[in-house]
Amino acid sequence: MSDDVVAVETAEADIPDPVVGVLAARLGEALGDGILAWEDSFGTLVIRVKPDSWAPAAEFAKGELECDYLSFISGIDWQPVTRPDGQEGSDLSAPVQPTEMTFGVTGSAGRFQVFGHVQSTSRHWGVTIKSDVDETDPRIASWVAIYPGADWHERECWEMYGIVFDGHPSLRNLYLPGGFEGHPLRKDFPLLAREVKPWPGLVDVEPMPGVVDAEGGE
């Protein structure tokens, strides 16, 4: 199956950077059908793996692809800004975002994803690895054993998105105070400053008075 996916994606990508193609092929060989999709995004390989392959992918990247350097690990919440049940979201004054859930490069199975970027200090290439996380029970394997620097990144991701990293030595709050409730970077977490004050940049979006929608529009 993986071969099919890879083939399709390769066909879709414009003209893949040779390094990206080689990296994708090697990852594909190693992880088999653990790879769901890959794409060349502005010269960087973005690869989406099954949750089971999240840690093996990193291990392979570090061991075989010489990606000895951990850049970051973080999460993403694909849910649109408005709340799904139609109830008025607190953030409607924000820059306009799509109202239905769409996914970015390489797609996603659901609302939450984790993604991390590792790169090689000797070969000067890098891979962005993505993986889907279940919405009801968000958890994924930890990278701490592979990259010790994952420690703080995973703690941050845990408190900001509520994604649990299995195998992390101590998931405790990094930025937030101990008793903090909620996960601030989730899209349904309101930004209180925007509750009390409308978005200051809103006026720029409206067409200027007297000017026909000539340059302001699309």
Binding site: K62, D68, Y69, L70, S71, F72, T121, I146, Y147, P148, G149, H153
Partner: peptide, 9 residues
């Protein structure tokens, strides 16, 4: 090696 794995840059 350790510095890179920690993301020290």
């Amino acid at each position: 090696e350790l510095g890179a794995a920690y993301g020290v840059s």
